[in-house]
């Protein structure tokens, strides 16, 4: 199944790719809306950082990745996991703290993992997984493989020293790593302008001898095309790239609320970005170009909705970890 889907992806027509991008974004959106609902109902207890509004980034980047390429992620990782092909049931079960979860109920929302599809893990330490992506690329390049690794991170990660160190090592050794910055204009309660002396993040790439792009992160086609160019180049051994995707999280920093009631940002700003919804935008285009009809879209939507609803049923029914296993896996059995 996976193999076939992958082959299809490689040799897809541009139309098929657009449809695929649409489905992936919608899958993420519906999953996140469900998560928001379940957090509100106290079904999900672990802190969940929602990806609603940013779907085009994970989707557009991952569309050019193979299963054996690695993705490293952050506290806001549901979208990255889904776009890389992670299983919805295992994701939802993880949010429920169940043993059937992708991290066996040990990680929760901030620590997802699905090594079988190349989603290596998400770290909740800001910038913490960026050097790991560099290291994976180092291993690939030492073995002369044509694999790439991707570090997803937020604008906040650019405040950390390890970001600069990682960029430098990657540039120095021309490693096949793509740095994807999701600039959603905020780091928790702080606007990016209060964090960075120079907010043109993409321009920092030049210092490290790599290409830097700033693109519309809500335009999935632009993300797809830019990422494809960078990924293909990295595969050919031409070194790393930094892609800064301008985007916005609709919900607050963590959980289903909007951070407007807390006075951290304005309703006008949020509305402006909701009007730039990446999914609506592609949907309009698909309809206009006659690639999908309204009823086909309806069908896709209900099919995906069902998969998401099913994941919640699966998660709820799944067993909790056995408390006797608390100390398992501190080390690998040797």
């Amino acid at each position: 199944m996976q193999k076939k889907a992958e082959k299809q992806r490689q040799s897809s027509s541009p139309q098929d790719i657009l449809k695929q991008l649409y489905r992936t974004m919608l899958r993420i959106r519906l999953f996140e809306e469900k998560t928001a609902e379940l957090v509100q109902k106290n079904e999900i207890l672990c802190p969940s950082h929602l990806y609603i509004g940013q779907e085009a980034v994970a989707t557009g980047v991952s569309a050019s990745l193979r299963k054996d390429d690695y993705v490293f992620s952050t506290h806001r990782s549901h979208g990255h996991y889904i776009a890389k092909g992670g299983d919805l049931n295992a994701l939802m079960a993880e949010l429920y703290g169940k043993v059937t979860g992708c991290s066996r109920g040990r990680g929760g929302s901030m620590h997802l993992s699905s090594p079988e599809v190349g989603f290596i893990g998400s770290s909740a330490i800001v910038a913490g997984s960026i050097p790991l992506a560099v290291g994976a690329a180092l291993a690939f390049s030492l073995r002369k493989q044509d694999r790439v690794s991707v570090a997803f991170f937020g604008d906040g990660a650019v405040n950390e020293g390890t970001w600069y160190e990682s960029m430098n090592i990657a540039g120095l050794r021309k490693l096949p790593v793509i740095f994807v910055c999701e600039n959603n204009l905020y780091s928790t309660h702080m606007p990016v302008s209060e964090c960075l002396a120079d907010t043109d993040i993409h321009r920092k790439a030049e210092t490290f001898g790599m290409s830097g792009y700033r693109i519309d992160g809500n335009n999935v086609i632009e993300v797809y095309e830019t990422a494809k160019k960078a990924i293909d180049a990295a595969r050919r051994g031409e070194g790393p790239a930094l892609i800064e995707c301008m985007t916005y999280r609709w919900r607050g920093h963590v959980g289903p609320n909007y951070d407007i009631e807390k006075g951290l940002r304005s309703k006008e700003e949020l509305d402006e970005w909701i009007a730039k919804c990446p999914i609506d935008r592609l949907e309009k285009q698909l309809l206009q170009q006659g690639l999908l009809t309204a009823s086909e879209i309806q069908r896709i939507r209900s099919e995906l909705k069902k998969a998401v609803d099913d994941s919640a049923v699966y998660a709820k029914k799944s067993p909790y970890p056995d408390e006797k296993t608390l100390l398992d896996n501190v080390f690998k059995e040797s």
Partner: peptide, 14 residues
């Protein structure tokens, strides 16, 4: 115990 903190509240309890 000498283990990282788990997520699941069932494990947190112990």
């Amino acid at each position: 115990p000498d283990a990282p903190a788990p997520s699941s509240s069932v494990l947190e309890k112990v």
